[in-house]
Amino acid sequence: MRGEFAATGIVLKYGVYVGAAIIAVGLLGLFLGTGWHEAVIAAGVAVVMATPFVGLLTATEKLLSIRDYKWALVSIAVVAITVAGAAMAWLT
């Protein structure tokens, strides 16, 4: 049985895996004493962090594609509230 939002699941799964792989490379650089490890680790952490937001966008796209506009609107509202909340917290 394949879920309706399986594509969102794939984004979440591989988004975190890619982020973790980048982090692993950065940590390897840390143990080798390189100068580039901090930027790589930060990039990996950023990828992990962004994963649920990309997943949210994917779910929104799925709802739009099946013309489930009522729930697409709810999803867009969550996107808007999330972005606005982060922006407000950052600015203040």
């Binding site: 049985m1 394949r2 879920g3 309706e4 939002f5 399986a6 969102t8 699941g9 794939i10 979440l12 799964k13 988004g15 975190v16 982020g19 973790a20 992990v48 962090m49 994963t51 649920p52 997943g55 779910a59």
Partner: peptide
Amino acid sequence: IAISSGGTAFYLRNGIANV
């Protein structure tokens, strides 16, 4: 986020999570 994303992927793939 790492916990939620990895676990949610399983729940979404199998239609367990109610999005």
